[in-house]
Computed example of a mutant assay.
Amino acid sequence: MALHMIKLCVGAASVEELLEWQRTREPDGPWIMRTRQTPKRTAELIDGGSLYRVFKGVILCRQAILAVATVGEGGSARCEVTLDPEPVRVAPTPRRAFQGWRYLDPKDAPSDLPDEAFGDIPTELARQLREVGAW
């Protein structure tokens, strides 16, 4: 059964900013999220799991987890999570701040939005409309 991971997206305020950062950082390389701790439930994460990203207190997108690997040894060991380069937008869901990453049970994961859900509306405007209950 798939298991998801959730992590704060620090330094990017929107999905568009995250994509732009990746394009300038490693335009042709794999999309790798690096973290200190290697998950113990790796097999469940790569069995259909995704990394859900929290922007300014709201989950906005997910990326499928393709691989999880530990690089280095001892105190310098780190974890590299290889992700699908195309984020999938999800129903904006509030999430309180936390450090590092956490497991996310599939029953608690926000549902995917259809591609046309945003249309030409900027992400920030869509978030504000949802907050006030207008959309």
Rank of each mutant, 00 (worst) to 15 (best):
M1H: 08
A2T: 13
A2D: 10
L3K: 04
I6F: 03
K7Q: 13
L8G: 12
A12Q: 09
A12N: 11
A13G: 06
S14D: 04
L18D: 01
L19Y: 05
E26G: 03
D28Y: 10
I32V: 13
R34A: 07
R34G: 02
R36F: 08
K40L: 14
T42R: 08
I46K: 05
I46V: 15
D47S: 13
G49D: 04
L51P: 02
Y52M: 04
V58D: 08
I59V: 13
L60I: 05
A69C: 10
A69Q: 14
T70G: 07
V71C: 09
G72W: 09
G72L: 11
G74A: 15
S76Q: 15
A77L: 06
R78G: 11
E80N: 09
V81E: 01
V81M: 10
T82D: 01
D84M: 00
A91M: 15
A91F: 09
G100V: 13
R102C: 11
R102N: 14
L104T: 04
K107G: 02
A109E: 04
S111K: 12
L113R: 07
P114E: 15
E116L: 09
A117S: 10
G119H: 04
D120P: 00
T123Y: 15
E124P: 03
L125R: 11
R130T: 10
E131H: 10
G133V: 05
A134F: 05
